[in-house]
């Protein structure tokens, strides 16, 4: 299964953290720090896999992609295929790109909830449930529509309905 999905900026700031195996909240910061150290030590144009037994337990690996100012990191165990995970990162990034029209770090910073919505359409409980970025896009848009419907019928401060409008 997939153990964790992380997006970390090159400034070592976490932009998205999702753990599928329980990690106590106190440890999150250490994990991010440890992962970032591993990533930042790796030069460009080397393989995208890192063994992370020390952080996530025996047999775990991490695959990452370094795009612009962000590291996209998936951590997984022996039940996943390395190259398939690399593809999955690609799917995730493509979907983000479609949802935000040329995604940049700021989109990710300001769209905490939407990012989770996208991720949840793709992975549930560490299992991949959808691998087509079109399909994910469709679901996310549908959720947006539904929320809009729902929010027009209730009294919600504008700031919230704004945020869900896209």
């Amino acid at each position: 299964m997939i153990q964790a999905v992380m997006v970390i900026s090159t400034q070592a700031k976490p932009r998205l953290l999702k753990f599928y195996n329980f990690q106590s909240p106190e440890k999150h910061q250490d994990i991010v720090r440890g992962v970032f150290q591993l990533l930042s030590a790796r030069p460009d144009s080397v393989s995208n896999f890192v063994e992370v037994d020390g952080i996530f337990g025996p047999g775990t690996k991490m695959v990452y992609k370094h795009l612009a100012t962000l590291y996209f990191v998936f951590v997984f165990d022996s039940s996943e295929n390395e190259l398939a995970m690399l593809d999955l990162i690609q799917v995730f990034v493509e979907t983000l790109d479609k949802c935000f029209k040329n995604v940049c770090e700021l989109d990710i910073v300001f769209n905490f909830n939407k990012l989770h919505t996208i991720l949840d359409e793709m992975i549930l409980g560490g299992q991949v449930i959808e691998t087509s970025s079109e399909q994910i896009m469709k679901s996310v848009e549908e959720i947006g529509r539904l929320e809009k419907q729902s929010s027009t019928t209730s009294l919600i401060p504008k700031s919230i309905s704004d945020r869900f409008s896209r």
Partner: peptide
């Protein structure tokens, strides 16, 4: 909550 956005949050 009956409101979907709240529920999602």
């Amino acid at each position: 909550s009956p409101s979907l956005p709240h529920k999602r949050l």
